[in-house]
Design a protein around this nucleic acid. Structure first.
Lengths: 161, 161
DNA sequence: TATTGTTATACTCTATAACTATA
DNA sequence: TATAGTTATAGAGTATAACAATA
């Protein structure tokens, strides 16, 4: 008797658990796939994110980069060192603040960023290829809801950890 | 004129790109949230995954663990060293193969695994709370399709990198 | 001869703390 | 005094290669 009474709730609960499992699996596959593509260009995820920021925002100080990447200034030093050694970025003098350095993409860095962007869009198209527009739209809508909840949790956690 | 002709395809393409961006954001939030919870128990993601395997499959050799975790045997040595030092696992003699060691959860390890599982289910319920069963079902269906594609890509990449 | 786990070594990401040059 | 970036040091995950004990 209880089984009938609880059926809806139990099923939803099980479904929710399974779906979260799938979401985690998806997360892992996405990140792994991304890193595989980056490795073939001699990049790691952290270094690629730095290039990505510069590509979208133009030259930035290391201070700004450390905030954009949510890591310490010391960490940015290491990343920029590596990217500079591999020819992706240069350190330029800041026009008005002699303490700061402007990290700037080289031609090679810009080319790499452009390739990453193209690969990303190609990946997006192939992932959803053949999916009905309606299905994509409703999937995206639920995804947006989930993201809203998660962003709230994340920002609350950052403020009061 | 071209804009009308291409509208459907362009819109889908844009939507696909946006949705992939959201998927990546979701992946990051999921992993970050997970790691926050683990850190409060003195665990890292890699160590938690090892505990998770033992919890679901019982005592395993390090060889088997290295395959389950997709990392080198050497890496497993480091993880087991750390987990053993913190009291989560022990190394036991293999009953028939004197080369192998069986990594086994301690009482503390089992308790931690149980807590992780409870937290995971709680998280799953709260993430989907209030979402209509239909929406959840169709979301899960699309998710399953995407996973199918990604798994193919991933396994193909592993075999011919 | 093949397999299990280890020592040795190295690279990457990350962090805190102390310090230099500049604002 | 505060800020930008560095040196110094450390922990964690990961990898390859060489080696021991055992199968």
């Amino acid at each position: 008797m209880n089984s009938i009474h609880n059926e809806g709730r139990s099923l939803s609960s099980v479904k929710a658990g399974q779906t979260v499992e799938r979401l985690f699996e998806l997360a892992i596959l996405l990140v792994d796939g991304l890193e595989g593509g980056l490795a073939s260009r001699g990049l790691t995820r952290a270094r690629a994110e730095l290039i990505w920021q510069l590509h979208h925002q133009g030259p930035l100080t290391q201070r700004t980069l450390s905030q954009a990447l949510r890591c310490t200034p010391r960490n940015v030093t290491t990343l920029v060192d590596a990217l500079q050694a591999d020819g992706f970025v240069t350190r330029e003098a800041h026009p008005t603040d002699r303490r700061a350095t402007l990290v700037t993409l080289t031609a090679q860095g810009r080319e790499t960023a452009t390739e990453m962007q193209a690969g990303y869009q190609q990946f997006a198209r192939s992932l959803f290829e053949g999916l009905a527009a309606d299905d994509l739209a409703s999937f995206a809508a639920v995804l947006e809801q989930l993201l809203g909840r998660l962003r709230n949790v994340a920002s609350a956690t950052r403020e009061q950890p």
